[in-house]
Design a binder for these strands. Structure first.
Lengths: 148, 148
DNA sequence: ACCAGTAGTTATATATCATAACCGTATCCC
DNA sequence: GGGATACGGTTATGATATATAACTACTGGT
């Protein structure tokens, strides 16, 4: 990343730690993700939010938050940005006037469509490293860590 | 996390994405890590830095940065904090007066020792979810994602 | 009509991650 | 040996992520 400090350091037990390996893997994949989707300029969380809204037109903010593990307070600026960019909108709730119903705009649909194409390339790159079998094993193993 | 928005949302293709699964798994494990080590009050990065210094007494900052994927600029406040807490020290470099040689203090050694005990419990919890075989598979698969 | 709870917002603090510019020192090389 | 160049570390700064508490507006039950 910088400097040619290529004297190999001893990492001790770190490489044997699941948490450490997860951290490093995630740092690496996020970087790749951002690079792969830079044409549509979407970060992983934004991509996930758009996807959930698209799959569930009219959802409430708190539902998206619960589904993705985002705090409702942090969701506000996140959605503001998507709205500012014309990708998603808050519509007034019909039954419950406290809540807003989230929808993608036509442009949001288009951008998400394009993002998916780019994401597919990125995902294929990961699958290439893992192999088909490895990929499904990984998904299964990570799933065991997620369930709280 | 909040609200009883337990209407199951459709997540679309998200659960099939390696990147998304990694993200969720890491969110979950970091939370567990912080909880497990709250008695010694170490975050994952601090724990990793102390470990590397301990394994390589006298390392330079940039070496630790390269080994752990930390930007040198961000390493400064990180180490400042460890030094402020009396866990690590910068000693003047002997051969090269630009660099500082990093060492753990006696207290740093003690805290790291204690941290490792706590970390072992946390790691065992993860291993319990994965199984011994699953754990080593996971480490292997994550390793394939890390090599850039 | 009251009141407890919910949806969303605001304000705020901390941690994380990235870039660029800078200082002092070391190295290279003529 | 002296000047260009590179390196180690620091500072400053900005963007992003994450967490908590308090507030407004509204809901639903009794």
């Amino acid at each position: 990343m910088q400097g040619s400090n290529r004297r190999k350091l001893r990492l001790g037990p770190l490489p044997e730690y699941v948490g450490y390996a997860l951290r490093r893997a995630q740092m690496s994949t996020v970087t790749q993700f951002v690079g792969a989707l830079k044409d549509v300029d979407l970060r992983p969380t934004q991509f996930a939010v758009l996807t959930v809204i698209r799959e569930n037109p009219g959802v409430r903010q708190s539902e998206v938050c619960a589904a993705l593990g985002i705090k409702k307070a942090n969701f506000v600026p996140l959605l503001n940005e998507l709205q500012r960019r014309g990708l998603a909108v808050r519509r007034a709730g019909v039954a419950d006037r406290r809540s807003s119903a989230l929808h993608l705009t036509a442009q949001g649909e288009a951008v998400l469509q394009r993002a998916r194409t780019l994401h597919d390339v990125y995902e294929a790159g990961l699958a290439g490293r893992l192999g088909m079998r490895g990929r499904s094993q990984l998904l299964s193993l990570l799933g065991r860590l997620i369930e709280s």
